[in-house]
Simulated assay, not measured.
Amino acid sequence: MSVTRTASATGSYTISDINIVVRQFTTDLKMIAASTRAMTEKAASEYGADIELLAAYGYLKSIDVTQMFGGSEVRAVRYNIDESTGAIKSSRPGGVLWSELAGSSIRIVFTHTTDLTDAVLQSLSSKLNRNWGNSTADTSHSSLTSSGGRSYASNGWGMHREDWS
């Protein structure tokens, strides 16, 4: 697949830039999986590959990752997509060594552009590792407190991570 996207006058990026940034997201997800034991590393890799594919097509706005325990949120991070990052400095992945809570789970919800219709998602299903569907999950994290974040970027494409605990 060959994809090139051009952002506003602040910069341009290629599929390689998207891959670099999404791999930082995937590293975070693997750290979350390893520390919580609520997801396997293989599942984290599969989610990362799906996010990389959807990002390459320009379908993503944000990805929300939440540790759930007993129906309540414990910790969360949201990665907001930025297609014109300009000259922000990219952070190193990390800061997501979450507590292991027996019986907890990891919820991953992405928001997407209007271009990602149900029909498009269905057409991509053979390329995706996980089954994705519509969600009504509240990702406002109103029960948690904002606790910082990081930015990941390569040329004009990036993700701004917001953390809650």
Score class of each variant (00 low, 15 high):
residue 74 V to T: 11
residue 135 S to C: 10
residue 77 V to G: 00
residue 160 H to Y: 09
residue 2 S to G: 05
residue 82 D to M: 03
residue 14 T to H: 06
residue 34 A to K: 13
residue 131 N to I: 14
residue 90 S to G: 04
residue 163 D to V: 08
residue 21 V to N: 02
residue 160 H to N: 10
residue 123 S to T: 12
residue 94 G to L: 10
residue 76 A to Q: 05
residue 110 F to I: 01
residue 1 M to E: 09
residue 155 N to D: 12
residue 24 Q to I: 01
residue 114 T to S: 15
residue 161 R to T: 02
residue 7 A to W: 04
residue 128 L to Q: 07
residue 126 S to N: 07
residue 71 G to I: 13
residue 102 A to L: 08
residue 67 Q to L: 07
residue 136 T to V: 10
residue 8 S to D: 13
residue 44 A to F: 12
residue 104 S to K: 02
residue 152 Y to V: 03
residue 76 A to D: 08
residue 100 E to S: 12
residue 23 R to E: 14
residue 94 G to R: 10
residue 135 S to A: 10
residue 7 A to C: 13
residue 11 G to V: 03
residue 41 E to V: 15
residue 153 A to D: 01
residue 15 I to E: 15
residue 138 D to W: 12
residue 94 G to C: 11
residue 123 S to N: 11
residue 146 S to K: 13
residue 77 V to Q: 02
residue 110 F to A: 04
residue 59 Y to N: 03
residue 69 F to A: 12
residue 26 T to H: 07
residue 147 S to M: 04
residue 62 S to A: 13
residue 58 G to S: 00
residue 119 A to D: 14
residue 71 G to W: 14
residue 8 S to G: 11
residue 106 I to T: 04
residue 162 E to S: 08
residue 153 A to M: 03
residue 102 A to N: 12
residue 12 S to R: 03
residue 164 W to G: 00
residue 74 V to H: 02
residue 31 M to T: 15
residue 58 G to I: 07
residue 123 S to K: 07
residue 14 T to W: 07
residue 22 V to S: 01
residue 83 E to D: 14
residue 162 E to P: 00
residue 56 A to W: 00
residue 63 I to V: 15
residue 39 M to G: 04
residue 100 E to Q: 15
residue 33 A to D: 08
residue 1 M to Y: 02
residue 86 G to R: 03
residue 142 S to V: 06
residue 95 G to C: 08
residue 83 E to P: 01
residue 72 S to V: 08
residue 52 E to R: 08
residue 94 G to W: 10
residue 72 S to C: 04
residue 71 G to T: 11
residue 47 Y to D: 00
residue 80 N to T: 14
residue 140 S to G: 12
residue 104 S to P: 02
residue 31 M to C: 04
residue 150 R to Y: 10
residue 123 S to F: 01
residue 143 S to W: 08
residue 88 I to H: 00
residue 55 A to G: 02
